[in-house]
Design a protein around this nucleic acid. Structure first.
Length: 439
RNA sequence: GCCCUGGUAGUGUAGUGGCCGAUCAUGUGGCCCUGUCGAGGCUGCGACGCGGGUUCAAAUCCCGUCCGGGGCGCCA
């Protein structure tokens, strides 16, 4: 007999023989009658045990199975209005496939919470909880939504190396590794490769892949390994084209999640707001002015830090009713390390770079890249970059490079803000941070 | 890199010098219970991260160390 899921058993006729299996979530014993609650990926079904019907020995064996053991049940479906799914199983045979040890390092349905550290140490058990698994089902839909958008917009999905010789943003945050005796690094960003492909004439590319940063942080929004969504497009008029594409992408993806993940979002109690296009754009300078008007003062040069981001996020939400807005025209001094950023023609103290904020947190960074070789070299020399280290990056700029630009988006952060997770790690199966390398 | 905070049964906690041979819950073992679904009742089990120090006395104070959680910087 083939195993069926709890949800499928709902459809069976009363009295049908069937086989179900899963994890024994709990056993409820009430004297001569007992109930087994068994969980599979579709739900929790109940097996009813009557000592009179199955005999004392079988009854005892069944109620002694440790919880979270994997069990297979063959039996008859019986309709009842006393369970959530509207049926229970009267067993013919109960087989323990894999007995769980006691005690569990982490209770799956205990009435006490566990700390994050304990949960992540025992992540496989943590993920047996429906509300944890649902996060990853939404994540799956989110990724589908992103790919759906890029297919529709005629982008091609690419894969660039994660073992690289140089980083995009200096050396401070690179993970070093030994590459056959040569010094190499884990990629922080596919940025430079995307640009090379613009020189190859791909015109529209995107990549969804891990990125690595060796920063020593301890926040709810950073991980050492995160999933980065990057796109790049050429023959653009300016950074507004990139922002347009970005906001369409967000709107499309969120709508996709809302449509395909409706029930799951309901289960998680998430009300997903779909933003309208185009998103609000606020130049960096204007952000500073807004903050000043609200009474914020700076000792030195005014900058937008974490606290300021939150304040601005709330302000935009109240004034314009949206969770999303762009901070545009980042000053050149703020984007100092970003040598490839194109600056404004009329004011070189400003760049074409922007961030996209979602619920007061940075989600996207992007802009138009400098495609003119001489200017690019000038900008690199300005901050003291050794051109030799970047020779393979610079080559394509000498033989015909179109105007282009793109973004990087933190997929884990998008998921975090979408589901209102209080920590980005909740949306990552096995997160990596400065204090965690296992599991 | 700077700063804050915490480590007590399997899990989550109370306890800030003697009242602690350590609280409560959850879990787990035993017993009772034939419709439970946060079941209920009775009863048992189980812990002070590690190393030094102060003191008549340390879970509690001090130093070091290891391991968590978080803030800032930085960033996606």
């Amino acid at each position: 007999m083939n195993r069926i899921h709890a949800k499928d058993a709902v459809e069976l006729e009363d009295g049908c023989k069937c086989k179900l299996g899963g994890w024994l979530q709990e056993t409820k014993k009430l004297g001569g009658i007992a109930f087994l609650k068994i969980r599979d990926r579709t739900g929790v079904f109940q097996v009813v045990l009557s000592e009179d019907e199955i005999g004392e020995e079988t009854f005892q064996e069944a109620i002694e199975i440790p919880r979270e053991s994997v069990v297979m049940i063959e039996g008859e479906k019986k309709a009842t209005d006393q369970t959530e799914l509207g049926f229970e199983i009267v067993p013919i045979s109960i087989k323990v496939e894999s007995e769980a040890e006691k005690p569990l390092p982490l209770g799956v349905v205990d009435k006490v919470d566990a700390e994050m550290g304990t949960r992540f140490d025992n992540r496989f058990l943590d993920l047996r909880k429906e509300e944890k698994r649902l996060i990853f089902e939404i994540r799956d839909i989110l990724l589908d939504g992103l790919r759906d958008f890029f297919n529709q917009e005629d982008f091609i999905e690419i894969n660039t190396p994660k073992i690289v010789a140089a980083g995009a943003e200096g050396g401070a945050t690179l993970f070093e590794l030994d590459y056959y005796g040569e010094e190499a690094y884990l990629a922080q960003s596919p940025q430079l490769y995307k640009q090379m492909l613009m020189a190859s004439g791909f015109e529209r590319v995107y990549e969804i892949a891990p990125a690595y940063r060796a920063e020593d942080f301890a926040t709810v929004r950073h991980t050492s390994e995160f999933l980065s969504l990057d796109f790049e497009m050429s023959f653009i008029e300016g950074s507004a084209d990139i922002m347009d594409m970005t906001s369409y992408m967000i709107k499309h993806t969120l709508s996709y999640v809302k449509e395909h993940g409706k029930k799951k979002l309901d289960r998680l109690g998430v009300e997903l707001e779909i933003p309208s296009h185009p998103f609000k754009k606020v130049p960096y300078r204007e952000c500073i002015a807004i903050l000043q008007e609200m009474g914020r003062e700076w000792e030195e040069e005014p900058e937008i830090g974490t606290e300021e981001e939150k304040v601005l996020g709330n302000y935009i939400k109240e004034e314009f009713g949206t969770d999303f807005f762009f901070i545009t025209e980042f000053p050149t001094r703020v984007k100092e390390g970003t040598f490839y950023a194109m600056r404004k023609e009329y004011d070189p103290s400003l760049t074409t770079y922007f961030d996209l904020e979602y619920k007061g947190q940075e989600l996207v960074s992007g802009g138009q890249r400098e495609h003119r070789y001489e200017i690019l070299v000038d900008q690199m020399e300005e901050i003291g970059i050794d051109l030799g280290d970047f020779s393979s990056y610079l080559e394509p700029f000498k033989y015909g490079m179109p105007t282009h630009g793109g973004i990087g988006l933190g997929v884990d952060r998008l998921l975090q803000q979408l589901l209102n997770l209080d920590n980005v790690r909740e949306g990552i199966l096995f997160p990596r941070d400065p204090r965690r390398l296992e599991p």
